[in-house]
C-alpha cells in the first residue's frame, strides 16, 4: 500500500520507532526512510556516530540510539525531510516533537498550530515550543511542538491557520 499512497502503515512506523523507555530518557532521532535510495547525508552530518548507512549508500539508515543525543543536525540535512526528533523526558503526559518545516510563515514560540498525521488529517491543536532557523540549517527551519502522548505514533506534520 505504501508504494501506492506514500503513507506508511502503523506497523512500519512502529518498527522504526525507539522504545518508550528510550524516548523517556531524552531526545532521539526517528528516521522514516522506508525504501532504499542512493543517499547518505544523515550519516555524514552526524557527529555522534549515531547514524549508519554504510559503504553502499542505498542502504537504509540505522540509528544507534545509545549514541544519538537528539541534536537534530540530521533533520535539516536530510533531503527527504524524513527525520524527526522525539523527546519524552520533559513530561509524563506529553512528548516534544521536532520536525523540519520549510514553509512561510514560520510559527512563533507559543503559537497554537494544528498537528497533522501522515495523511495530513488534523489530530489536535498543539503548542509550538521552539523554532530554530540558523543560517547553518540552510533554509530548512526546525519546529518543536508539544503533543499528548496518545498521538506519538501518528503525528508527523503541523499546519498554521494562516490569517488572510
Amino acid at each position: 500500500m505504501f508504494e501506492k499512497t506514500g503513507v506508511p502503515s502503523k506497523e512500519m512506523v512502529r518498527e522504526i520507532f525507539p522504545s518508550i523507555d528510550r524516548i523517556n530518557k531524552g531526545p532521539v532521532a526517528v528516521i522514516e526512510c522506508y525504501k532504499e535510495i542512493p543517499c547518505n547525508p544523515c550519516q555524514t552530518a552526524c557527529k555522534y556516530d549515531a547514524i549508519h548507512v554504510g559503504e553502499d549508500i542505498n542502504h537504509r539508515p540505522e540509528v544507534n540510539r545509545d549514541n544519538c543525543i537528539g541534536c537534530a543536525i540530521c533533520l535539516s540535512k536530510c533531503p527527504g525531510l524524513a527525520i524527526m526528533i522525539v523527546d519524552g523526558s520533559k513530561s509524563e503526559e506529553t512528548v516534544q516533537i521536532r520536525i523540519p518545516f520549510e514553509f512561510y510563515p514560520l510559527p512563533k514560540e507559543g503559537d497554537t498550530v494544528k498537528a497533522l498525521d501522515r495523511e495530513g488529517n488534523v489530530l489536535t491543536d498543539v503548542k509550538v515550543v521552539k523554532v530554530l532557523n540558523p543560517k547553518s540549517f540552510d533554509r530548512t527551519p526546525l519546529v518543536t511542538f508539544e503533543i499528548d502522548r496518545e498521538y506519538l505514533y501518528d503525528v508527523r506534520n503541523i499546519r498554521l491557520e494562516v490569517q488572510p
Partner: peptide
C-alpha cells in the same frame, strides 16, 4: 517515497 510522504502528510 520520502518525497511522496512529504506531500502526502
Amino acid at each position: 517515497l520520502v518525497h511522496a510522504s512529504k506531500v502526502r502528510r
